[in-house]
Simulated scan of single mutants.
Amino acid sequence: MAVTTKSLGNIRRSFDPWNDPAQKPLIEVDGVTKRFGDFTAVNDLTLHIYTREFFALLGPSGCGKSTLLRMLAGFETPTSGDIRLDGKSLVGIPPHQRPLNMMFQSYALFPHMTVEKNIAFGLKQDGMAKSEISDRVAEMLKLVKLTPFAKRKPQQLSGGQQQRVALARSLAKRPKVLLLDEPLGALDKKLREETQFELMDLQQDLGLTFIVVTHDQEEAMVMADRIALMREGRIAQVAPPAVIYEAPSNRYVADFIGHVSLLDGTVEGRRNGLLRLAAAGTIVEAEASADLQPGTPASFAIRPEKVKITRQAPADPSINALRGQIWDIAYFGDVTQFNVKLASGDIVRATTINALRSAAEPLTWDDDVWLTFAPDAGIVLTS
């Protein structure tokens, strides 16, 4: 009889070479450190990225993600450590001799050139024959759906169209790896969301390895096969989006990705296989594999959509139940978020799906409510 295991989130594609010991990484970042004077931008970082992977470097400003991307591109040299592509060191190899290309946040298009000349620029620099350049440019224009705009100049295009020109120019040389530095940052929200799916489809069609730098967590969650969340030049966690979201390795990861409520408390022991944690004026019973001793400080991290909010008290208000008052309400159309203030002073978020257009007795400010959750709804963290 086959044994089924729980999956953390829905799976976009069956692609996980990082879990196969027989698979060799395409890119190996091995103990890389980069210093600028007394400042350490990247600190002894090791990372493996695989062929055909859509990989995201995520983190706040100043965490080292762009510096790492620039070292991959060859615009910066590691202070120590090695970067290998297909087993060969890239250290000391100039950018134009590396089999990868970079798309900059500003797009860096030549304003005096047409779309087709912008795309052809790198090919001409490489000495490709004119007939081959013409064919390659036509192929790229078709790929990014800009054939009718070939004769226009960048200033005659929308922001989304300029982004596509920059992408086509980056892909024209058919690099093994495409590096994207905040590629969607200049686009408005709706266009950015549409372009995320276009980039994903394009990466799949071309079979290339994409490495994207972004500070936008939603962007990384949508596009990437795996995310490396960075903090102060180091990696806090590397995992697929669903694992990062549902099973963060520490408080920093839990708090950075999405919304989360963190209930700080102390381990009391176990009952019926569940870890018992005294926190926020209640007893939290949670699934936890770690063998934590009574008295150990710990936190229970829970996402808003895992919390049920009602006016009615639960059958057992002493276990996985919190009483409070609605402090703030945010209506997003598809969902409504409630910030509930507990007697302890903690603020816990709860999100409800607006499945109906109207509610008979809608919750509002200052309502007294109960928050409840299942033992497997959150995760216990000790760091």
Rank of each mutant, 00 (worst) to 15 (best):
L371Q: 05
K341W: 03
K65F: 02
D30E: 13
A220Y: 03
F338L: 12
M140K: 14
D44E: 13
P154G: 05
S66Y: 02
V380N: 13
A321W: 01
G185V: 05
E139P: 00
D86E: 14
P154H: 01
L179T: 12
V32F: 06
Y252N: 07
A2V: 13
K65N: 01
S261W: 04
L45F: 05
Q203G: 14
P362R: 11
I11R: 15
K65S: 02
K6L: 15
P21A: 01
Q97H: 14
E28L: 07
Y245C: 07
I302P: 05
R12S: 08
D255A: 09
T5H: 15
P175D: 13
N250L: 03
L187D: 09
V243S: 08
K176G: 13
D216Y: 03
D205A: 14
Q155R: 12
F55G: 02
Q125R: 11
N10T: 08
A73C: 08
A236G: 06
L277Y: 07
A108F: 00
I347H: 06
T336C: 14
G258D: 06
Q293E: 11
M102C: 01
L275T: 12
V177L: 15
R152D: 02
N118Y: 01
L381W: 12
L180F: 00
N339C: 08
R192H: 11
P241V: 10
V307G: 06
G122K: 11
N339L: 11
A239Q: 05
G233R: 13
K117P: 00
T209V: 11
R136C: 00
R251N: 02
E305V: 15
V3A: 15
D86L: 02
G185P: 02
L146T: 13
F75H: 06
L69P: 08
I244Q: 09
I235H: 07
L371I: 10
H96P: 09
I93D: 01
T282N: 13
V238H: 02
G324Q: 11
Q23C: 10
V260M: 09
A359T: 13
D376I: 12
Q312S: 08
D334S: 13
T296K: 10
V144G: 14
L69V: 10
D316N: 12
L191M: 07
H96D: 07
N272H: 02
D20H: 06
I379A: 06
T5I: 07
R303H: 15
M140V: 13
A242W: 07
S7T: 14
P175Y: 03
L90K: 05
A166W: 01
L123T: 10
T372E: 05
A350L: 10
F55H: 06
R276F: 01
P241D: 01
V3W: 12
A280T: 09
C63Q: 09
L109G: 05
G233V: 15
F104D: 04
P183W: 01
S249N: 08
F110C: 00
P99I: 09
D316Y: 00
D16N: 08
T40N: 11
G273I: 04
T310L: 00
T351E: 14
E76M: 03
W365S: 14
H215W: 00
